[in-house]
Amino acid sequence: MKLVQKEVRKQRSEDNLKEFLINDTSISVTDVIGSVLYVNNNISDLIEIPNPRIVHS
């Protein structure tokens, strides 16, 4: 029973983290010279520029 409870708590923590990352976090990824490789929708919405225009092709 304790193992099941531990697994349920772990799943809830992972779900909470995923929700936070999706809804409340701005994420960008750049290469070593600073070219933008990825931005999530939060950054795109914040600076009001569509993702395809931000990410370096």
Results as ranks from 00 to 15, higher is better:
M1I: 07
K2E: 12
L3N: 01
V4R: 03
V4L: 08
V4E: 04
V4I: 09
Q5E: 10
K6Q: 06
K6F: 06
K6A: 07
E7G: 00
V8W: 02
K10C: 07
K10R: 13
K10G: 06
Q11I: 12
Q11Y: 10
Q11R: 15
Q11P: 02
Q11W: 05
Q11K: 15
R12T: 10
S13A: 13
S13E: 11
E14F: 09
E14K: 11
D15P: 04
N16Y: 07
N16G: 04
L17E: 01
L17W: 06
K18V: 10
E19I: 08
E19F: 05
F20W: 00
F20C: 04
L21H: 01
L21V: 03
L21K: 03
I22Q: 07
N23E: 04
N23F: 02
N23M: 03
D24L: 03
D24W: 01
T25V: 15
T25Y: 05
S26T: 09
S26P: 05
S26K: 09
S28D: 12
V29Q: 13
D31Q: 07
D31I: 12
D31P: 05
V32Y: 14
V32W: 11
V32K: 15
I33Y: 11
I33C: 08
I33G: 07
I33A: 10
G34N: 08
V36I: 15
L37C: 09
L37K: 14
Y38D: 08
Y38H: 14
Y38F: 15
V39C: 08
N40C: 05
N41E: 14
N41G: 09
N41I: 08
N42G: 05
I43S: 02
D45Q: 13
L46H: 00
I47T: 00
I47C: 01
I47S: 01
E48V: 03
E48P: 00
I49N: 02
I49F: 02
I49H: 01
P50G: 01
N51Y: 02
N51M: 11
P52F: 06
P52Y: 09
R53W: 06
R53E: 14
I54C: 05
V55E: 00
V55M: 02
H56W: 14
H56V: 11
